[in-house]
Computed example of a mutant assay.
Amino acid sequence: MRKKKSFQWAFSIIVCFLIIAISAFNVFGNMHSQLQGDLKKRLGAFMDKKAVESQFNGVVLVAKGGKAVFEKGYGFANKENRIPNQLNTQFRIASLTKSFTAVSILQLEREGKLKTSDPISKYINHFHDGDKITIQDLLTHSSGVADHFNLTDTTKPITLNAFINLMEKQSLSFNPGTKYQYSNTGYMILAYIIEKVSGESYQTYFQNHIFKPAGMNSTYLRKVDANNFANGYKNMKKVVESDDESQLAGAGDIISTVGDMLKYNNAIHNFKILSPTEVVKMETGYIDTDQWGVFKYGYGWKVANNLISFGRPMIEHNGSLPGFKCELVDFIKDRVTVIVLSNNNGTWNSGALARELASLCLGTKFWFYQKYF
Rank of each mutant, 00 (worst) to 15 (best):
A226I: 02
F310T: 09
V336M: 12
K64S: 10
L262A: 05
I189L: 14
N345E: 15
T364D: 14
S342T: 11
P119W: 09
S143R: 02
V279I: 04
Y286K: 11
F229H: 11
M167P: 00
S143Y: 03
H269W: 07
Y286E: 11
E53A: 11
N349P: 00
V340K: 08
Y202A: 06
Q136E: 13
V338F: 08
A45F: 07
S54C: 08
I273H: 05
L35P: 01
N349E: 08
R222M: 12
N125K: 03
Q203Y: 13
Y187V: 07
Q247L: 08
N343T: 03
V338M: 12
G29R: 13
A352G: 07
D225H: 13
N30G: 00
N235L: 09
I287A: 14
N349A: 01
S183H: 08
L190R: 15
L328G: 01
N344D: 10
M167H: 03
M261Y: 06
N26S: 07
Q181L: 15
L307Y: 10
F17I: 13
L43C: 04
L43A: 04
G65Q: 13
V338W: 09
V303H: 01
K50H: 11
G186H: 02
I133Y: 04
G285W: 00
V258N: 10
S183F: 12
V27P: 12
K296C: 04
K41Q: 09
Y182R: 12
N318F: 05
A77E: 05
E356P: 01
F206Y: 15
G323C: 11
G186I: 00
S183G: 09
A21E: 02
R355A: 05
D137P: 00
F100L: 09
I14Q: 04
K302V: 01
I193D: 05
Y187P: 14
Y180R: 05
W292Y: 13
Y233A: 02
E245H: 03
T152P: 00
N235I: 02
L360K: 09
L172F: 11
P84V: 06
I210F: 02
D288V: 02
K4F: 12
Y182N: 10
P119H: 14
N318G: 15
N231Q: 11
K263I: 03
Q36E: 15
W367S: 07
T277E: 15
D260S: 01
V303G: 00
N318T: 15
L61W: 06
A267S: 14
V336N: 05
E241Q: 00
K272M: 08
D38T: 07
I20W: 06
T347I: 10
Q107F: 08
F163W: 06
I164D: 10
K3P: 04
Y202D: 09
G66P: 00
Y233T: 02
Q55N: 13
F17P: 06
Y286W: 14
V303Y: 02
I105M: 12
I189M: 12
Y182W: 13
A45I: 01
T277M: 10
I19W: 07
F149I: 02
V59Y: 03
L114S: 07
F331S: 02
E195D: 11
A162S: 14
L360T: 03
M261A: 05
V197G: 05
